[in-house]
Write a protein that binds this DNA or RNA. Structure first.
Length: 574
RNA sequence: CGGGGUGUAGCGCAGCUUGGUUAGCGCACCUGCCUUGGGAGCAGGGGGUCGGUGGUUCGAAUCCACUCACCCCGACCA
């Protein structure tokens, strides 16, 4: 591509709509442009990146035996009513009506459609397993779109769906996808790791997320420093060791004006770890729960929702607490005044012999409270794990927290959709059975942007070669020298003939502009032709990442560059 | 949805408090000269319903009301 004909328009200034580097760089380098909140156009260079990521995904999916299809983006509401998600998906689902007033949705995901396709054709176990995938634009009306392609409302996603005749088959399909995902992200040049995840509203049993490691990531990950355990904070577990405290009798004590854990503990001269706080939540059916956790712990709302079979939990506000007959600041499990509210206790409290808890009486707390002696409650894992706690897998390693960008997610769905949508096949015995399904997503644009977040410097993007818009860039610094122009033109057409992926900056611009644009756009291998070196029959070849420069004889450039290219690819081999 | 903020040329901004010429600056863009290894210089030029609607006023970018859009912080997701 000639730069002058390439529709490449860079911006010198920081873009105020972008608050993280990768978003800012995508805009400044002219890869994308915003159309509306969370909705972007891909310009020629941006599209080239999207296509390269897509192609890697496609190759690995095909290698894993999946088949590419393309499903409709606009889907009839009927299927969503069958799966019950017409109600459950909420406002994120973009609902539209046709001219007759019939309800449709713009697909945010395709479990319903793909299940409909498969149930139509696959009636026999003999035709299973099957894995269908597509790469396509999705729409989710996010509450808060952010960070450009990182969390757009409209975005390009690869979604795959596996169908098996039994659970073992589903496990095999899942493992194949897992391997494919490792290959894909490795080939994209990303530093990533897979972590255990909560299955969320999509449902199902096992689930892993693929996280690109980055301090700007929106997800918090817990990893073990000595084994392979890693998990999203949402689902992370840990082994905690409590200090010992001797059993004491239950005693009511005055705690005037003291409501917070910190104030109460300070006043009573007790450590916060030997106190328990009570948090009140209601779920989507307005059932109210009281969660009791150690004073210095934090409630994990995902775990809490799971423990109560709730879809969504929201904290009670002050009015609602009062209406429930409780006293804010003094709520505790002993003599709990409202029998309709179920108390669920974090299992960590089982090991504490003496707790400070609210007395449900203004200005009073209990000391010495003990679970199963002074109050009863079901126990569950409810807390957010903390750094330096022990690994639940190897028991010895310490946990640490890092941040990541979720670029892929794989699930075992099980029978969730096949049952609700009555999608079944006949087994060996002629008996109808629902398919065992799995679903597997990759955010294509998010992957591209995550690569920038992980690979950039103060001058611009440093693309991994496999997903760069171009692999090689020729920059002519002296467009008016006939000799140099002739050389560059010949070099360019020679490289095109050799099928090299090259951008040729033929613009009649000053050196500074061209060199800065080159750094900003981030093409990995650069060839700079200027008269300073050309008089000695040399051109400069440099590496975007290391900034190392080499003077190469002008007739050896193609060969030299091809060699570097192969080396760069070698580092990304699976 | 709750909290905070911003809308003036393609991008980045000033002007608004205290209403009053033809709405201004930098970058980008066009023409000419000059310049060519790190975003040059000089001269000339094009581009705006000041987010929208309504109001107050002799007069509104500026004051008032409503409204829309966008951004940032929290709960959701690829």
């Amino acid at each position: 591509m000639r730069y002058s004909k390439g529709f490449i328009y860079t911006l010198k200034e920081e873009q105020k709509e972008a608050s993280i580097a990768s978003h800012n760089l995508l805009l400044r380098a002219g890869f994308i442009t915003k159309l509306a909140s969370g909705i972007y156009n891909y310009l020629p260079t941006g599209l080239r990146v999207i296509k390269k990521v897509s192609e890697i995904v496609r190759e690995e999916m095909n290698r894993a035996g999946a088949l590419e299809i393309l499903m409709a983006t606009v889907q009839p509401s009927k299927l969503w009513k069958e799966s019950k998600r017409w109600n459950d998906y909420g406002k994120e689902l973009l609902r539209i009506k046709d001219r007759k007033g019939n309800d449709f949705v713009f697909g945010p995901t395709h479990e319903e459609v793909v299940t409909d396709i498969v149930r139509k054709y696959i009636k026999s176990y003999k035709n299973l397993p099957v894995n269908l995938y597509q790469i396509q634009t999705k729409f989710r009306d996010e509450l808060r779109p952010r960070f450009g392609l990182m969390r757009g409302r409209e975005f390009i996603m690869k979604d795959a769906y596996s169908f098996d005749s039994d659970e073992e088959g589903m496990d095999v399909s899942y493992q194949k996808m897992r391997t494919a995902y490792y290959n894909i992200f490795k080939r994209c040049g990303l530093s990533f790791r897979s972590v255990e995840a909560d299955t969320g509203s999509i449902g199902g049993k096992d689930s892993e997320e693929f996280m690109v490691l980055s301090s700007t990531g929106e997800d918090e990950i817990v990893v073990c420093d000595s084994c392979e355990y890693s998990s999203n904070i949402e689902s992370a577990k840990s082994i905690t060791k409590n200090d010992y405290i001797a059993e004491e009798p239950l005693k009511k004590v005055a705690t005037p004006q003291k409501q917070t854990i910190k104030d109460v503990c300070e006043f009573l001269q007790k450590e916060e770890q030997f106190s328990a706080k009570a948090l009140l939540y209601k779920n989507e059916n307005n059932e109210v729960f009281c969660f009791l956790i150690q004073g210095d712990d934090e409630l994990n709302e995902i775990k809490a929702a799971r423990a109560t079979n709730s879809v969504e939990l929201t904290m009670l506000n002050d009015d609602e607490i009062e209406k429930a007959g409780l006293l804010k600041g003094y709520i505790g499990p002993v003599n709990f005044p409202n029998k309709d509210i179920k108390i669920i206790c974090d299992k960590r409290l089982e090991n504490i012999n003496s707790l400070v808890v609210g007395a449900n009486e203004k200005g009073y707390h209990f000391t010495g409270a003990k679970l199963h002696r002074d109050f009863e409650a079901e126990t569950k894992d409810l807390r957010v794990v903390k750094e330096f706690e022990f690994c639940p897998r190897c028991k010895n390693g310490k946990l640490k927290k890092i941040r990541g960008i979720e670029v892929g997610h794989i699930f075992k769905l099980g029978l969730k959709y096949s049952q609700s949508m009555k999608a079944s096949f006949l087994d060996k015995n002629g008996k109808a059975k629902p398919y065992f399904m799995g679903c597997y997503g990759i955010g294509i644009g998010r992957t591209a942007q995550a690569a920038i977040e992980q690979n950039h410097d103060d001058k611009g993007i440093v693309w991994p070669i496999s997903i760069a818009p171009f692999e090689i860039e020729i920059v002519s610094l002296d467009t008016r020298s006939d000799e140099i122009k002739k050389y560059c033109e010949e070099l360019y057409s020679d490289m095109l003939n050799k099928k090299l992926d090259v951008l040729y900056d033929d613009r009649d611009e000053r050196a500074g502009i061209k060199l800065n644009d080159m750094d900003l756009i981030g093409v990995p291998i650069r060839i700079v032709v200027g008269k300073r070196n050309f008089k000695d029959s040399k051109v400069e070849v440099s590496d975007r990442k290391t900034q190392e420069k080499y003077l190469i004889d002008k007739d050896d450039v193609v060969e030299y560059v091809s060699k570097i290219r192969d080396e760069l690819y070698k580092n990304l081999q699976i």
